[in-house]
């Protein structure tokens, strides 16, 4: 009885507040827009009995999804989300790997402090961290002031409200997600392997490419997914740092819902976004599974 209670409480909570809402999204994505409250049809009418239910299902269709394929905006938004997520994941790797490498090679008594300093930004507001770049990247911002005072540029660079600002924002906010798994992989690495490679004729650089990097691949893949997956559905960064031409699907969904009040289309956008995410999520889980097996 007690066990039943223990299972039932969180189970019912999640069913009611996670699964059911998601099914509602799915259902509304198959409905039509209407000028009503709530602004979609059909409504499930239990009062009408079986006929009501039959009519309800008969009225569902894939119209919204067809609409998504017809309107170039959505196509472009999906593709551009994928591109922005992929490019920023690549940059995050480029920035994060050397930091993780240096941390793993730092003196052992320094490592916990370095770890804490990497994690600390996690606890500060995401919104504030994104916001802090607005002042840096704007046309009269600190970066332009700095570069112009050095005489490196004569005209201010336009970074804010471009995709570049979005890349920087994603790299900045998701950097710890990249560093931590790579650091974990590198820290486990047996130093004797590098010595063995050098002993067998490798220079330091070739020992890195032939031994260190392949052995940290698991961490690199995990880090890339941990950045790519949330970046794909990102909303705050493109809306604060991106320009009006920065298309990301999270932003489109938000606008579809709040500005256009087109709930069915917003729901359809959500369903497609989720479909897009399924592939990387499954790949990520495979990678984790493999890492766990390798550990045993």
């Amino acid at each position: 009885m007690r066990r039943f209670f223990l299972i039932a409480v969180p189970y019912i909570w999640l069913l009611a507040l996670f699964l059911v809402p998601f099914l509602i999204v799915l259902k509304i994505s198959l409905s039509d827009t209407a000028l009503a409250i709530p602004p979609y049809t059909p409504q499930l009418d239990f009062g009408a009995g079986w006929d009501g239910i039959r009519n309800f299902f008969a009225a569902l269709d894939f119209e919204n999804f067809t609409f998504l394929t017809e309107d170039a905006l959505y196509w472009k938004a999906y593709l551009s989300s994928l591109k922005i997520a992929a490019v920023s994941t690549f940059f995050t790797l480029l920035v994060g790997y050397p930091i993780a490498y240096a941390m793993a090679n730092a003196r052992i008594e320094w490592r916990p402090t370095l770890m804490m300093l990497i994690i600390l930004p996690f606890w500060t507001s995401f919104l504030i961290r994104v916001y802090s770049w607005m002042g840096i990247l704007s046309q009269e911002g600190y970066l332009n002031q700095f570069l112009m005072s050095l005489g490196l540029i004569s005209e201010p660079l336009i970074i804010l409200n471009t995709n570049w600002a979005v890349y920087i924002g994603i790299v900045y906010t998701y950097l710890p997600f990249m560093i931590l798994p790579i650091y974990a992989a590198l820290e486990k690495l047996d130093g004797a392997l590098i010595e063995a490679a050098e002993d067998l004729g490798c220079s330091r650089l070739s020992a890195f490419w032939l031994v260190t990097f392949p052995l940290s691949k698991g961490g690199v893949i995990a880090g890339c997914f941990l950045v790519f997956i949330p970046a794909l559905g990102e909303f705050v960064i493109p809306s604060l740092l991106g320009g009006s031409d920065t298309l990301m699907i999270g932003k489109v969904l938000w606008e579809e819902f709040f500005s256009n009040r087109d709930w069915p289309v917003a729901s359809a956008v959500a369903v497609v976004l989720l479909l897009l995410l399924i592939v990387p999520i499954i790949l990520f889980q495979r990678n984790e599974q493999k890492a766990r097996e390798a550990d045993q």
Binding site: I7, P10, Y11, L14, L15, L17, F18, L19, V20, P21, F22, I24, V25, I28, I229, P230, L232, G233, E234, F235, G250, L253, W254, F257, W263, A266, S267, A270, L273, L274, L277, I281
Partner: peptide, 25 residues
């Protein structure tokens, strides 16, 4: 399986979708 799925799914679910679905509920 459904239970553990419902525990892990929200971790990777984009916030816009979680928000939207709860609002619709």
């Amino acid at each position: 399986t459904l239970f553990s799925g419902m525990i892990y799914a929200p971790l990777v679910m984009p916030e816009v979708i979680t928000g939207l679905s709860l609002l619709l509920l």
